[in-house]
Design a protein around this nucleic acid. Structure first.
Lengths: 123, 123
DNA sequence: TGGAAGCCTCACATCAGTGTGAAGGTCAAG
DNA sequence: CTTGACCTTCACACTGATGTGAGGCTTCCA
């Protein structure tokens, strides 16, 4: 599929699809005319990228973890061929993500507690 | 306390403390000489702000929810005096935060599953 | 064959968060 | 009284994510 269709199907402007490619998050093939050609799986891939960006990750972080998020692309590096340094880096990313989750969950709890106090009549 | 001490105690550069004030996240008093004067609670407040920024929230979102994160500042608006529109906005923020948590947790799980596959010998 | 639509690259613009430095006021200690 | 540390505002710069437009090629359809 070409970039226009991918844009329509994901709601992501073509500008950003090109940007994600520049950031090594997408790797479309090129037709003889220079047009980008995306596989079907790119739709899910783009949605994954958007979710992570919206969750506050940078393109660099996403680039680091994306190959291992086997959601739909089946090109996951074989676990046995992953050097321990890579695994260690991946673990660091997991830790950072966990820290974010903890911080967000903590504050979500405070807000919900507050909201519960605001409208106890809503019982 | 003045800005230098707050900076030292939080590890946040004075430049950013002034920026957070510009974004209405901090409200130091001013001495007769124009110097900013922060209460003791500002230390916790700044740490709270940093945690949320590091978790990917914008200063605008933080500004919206900060008054209700009663961590240490006791100046929480009284629940009974909160108009329902405010509560609704707050709920939207909670929902957005929850969406982030869900996305991050989902992908954390994928990464940890992958890591578990990488080193099964670590048992 | 011609025009519209879609694609290409390039480039400049914006916003948020942050770094850095200039130019100057305040204050305490020597 | 001067020096040095600390404070003030102002301003320019950078990065990352994104918007926007120009100029030009390709493809398709009437």
């Amino acid at each position: 599929m070409r970039i226009g269709e991918l844009s329509r199907r994901t709601g992501v402007p073509t500008r950003l699809l090109r940007y994600y490619e520049e950031q090594h998050l997408l790797h479309p093939e090129r037709g003889g005319n220079g047009y980008r050609s995306y596989p079907e799986s790119a739709v899910a891939q783009v949605q994954q990228i958007r979710g992570l960006l919206d969750s506050g990750l940078t393109t660099a972080m996403i680039h680091a973890i994306l190959p291992y998020l086997c959601g739909s692309s089946r090109l996951v590096p074989a676990p046995e061929s992953v050097p321990p340094e890579t695994a260690a880096l991946l673990q660091e990313h997991v830790d950072r993500i966990q820290a974010r989750i903890d911080c967000l969950a903590r504050n979500r709890d405070r807000l919900t507690a507050y909201l519960a106090a605001v409208r106890p009549e809503k019982r």
